[in-house]
Design a protein around this nucleic acid. Structure first.
Lengths: 192, 192
DNA sequence: CGTCTATTTGAATGTACTCAAAAGCGGTGG
DNA sequence: CCACCGCTTTTGAGTACATTCAAATAGACG
């Protein structure tokens, strides 16, 4: 099993010793999700945090009207899961589903907690949580400040991989609009 | 200076030794903001994370159309600031302003970083960041799943202190709508 | 008391939604 | 290899919710 990718991704964020890496890498549990398969769904107590080695996933929830709302897509190099459910053993309200055949490196609670409390992975984890929080805050702020058209144009520019790899109705859900609306927006844009 | 409140708030989240508390409390820099005064504004590199001892603040940003968007209100017991700017020494895009005369307990970067890297405050900080992240994720999800009326009714029920202490046009900004719209929603509700 | 700000009300507009149907696309089995 | 089926995307018409701009009323503060 080749851990170069996850190692280099972690090294971008925090320095760590050879000993710490050996411990951490021994905790990796590889797992492959087939397209459309779920890692967890609403009601589960989430057993793993996962690193996306290859493929992509969507992380979403169902509102009380039965509509799905995608919170984020996770591509190669992303850490995915529901921290609240994972650490606090609470049933999750989210779904994590593969959109392509996806290779994950998973970590269970016992091992992950051990690593962050006893190695420099504590620093690493603090950093990615902080980043996730800040980016969610920004995304939240932008959900109000920008129109759907502006948000779509920004995706095109800043996250072209989302446009290229993800079916349109999922992008609509990610943007917080209906597929019909996204279709009209695209139509309008292409006419410019 | 009475540190009982902040001590008890921290103790709710993490256990820590007497020695750690003495260190941490020695880092507290008390500061009072007068109503309408700013702790920081757009462009500043944020120098402090702060605990709200008394009073309340709003944390908001300006969009490119000149409208303000409130991300959160901070009441007694809240930790407030811009982590990204604070830790990464980047100019902030946010404003933090007192809505009442407000007593803060502030921590500068050097001290705070020392505490989280060398004491059990690391655990404490990981926990509040995690919680902030999860609640922002939930808030983001709800910004799409619920109508303004539903969000307002939920505030009434779950955060009455916001309704009671905060001027209506700020609540509108927090809900992501215009003051006129909130006025109409309130009118409609009271007619029921 | 007067001034400034916040809230309400009105009318017209815009953006996205709903419901319905048609067109396009991709995978599967014959 | 093609035909069919199911799912995705597009298009149309009517609707709902929130916005804009404007003006009136109410409230807060010096």
């Amino acid at each position: 099993m080749n851990f170069e990718f996850i190692k280099s991704e972690i090294e971008k964020i925090a320095v760590f010793s050879q000993k710490d890496w050996e411990l951490f890498s021994s905790f990796i549990e590889p797992h492959t999700l087939r397209k459309k398969e779920f890692l967890f769904s609403e009601g589960d107590v989430v057993k793993y945090l996962a690193f996306v080695q290859k493929g992509c996933i969507r992380y979403y929830l169902n509102d009380n009207k039965g509509d799905e709302h995608i919170v984020y897509f996770g591509f190669e190099g992303w850490w995915v899961g529901d921290m609240n459910s994972f650490f606090n053993r609470k049933p999750t309200i989210y779904y994590l589903q593969a959109l392509e055949d996806t290779d994950l490196f998973m970590f269970n609670r016992e091992n992950f907690t051990y690593a962050i409390e006893n190695t420099t992975y504590g620093e690493f984890f603090r950093e990615i949580t902080k980043r996730s929080y800040m980016s969610m805050q920004k995304r939240y702020a932008e959900s109000n400040t920008k129109s759907a058209e502006e948000k779509y144009l920004e995706l095109l520019e800043k996250n072209p991989q989302i446009i290229q790899r993800i079916p349109q109705h999922y992008i609509a859900s990610y943007l917080g609009i209906k597929p019909e609306s996204l279709s009209r927006i695209r139509n309008k844009i292409s006419g410019k």
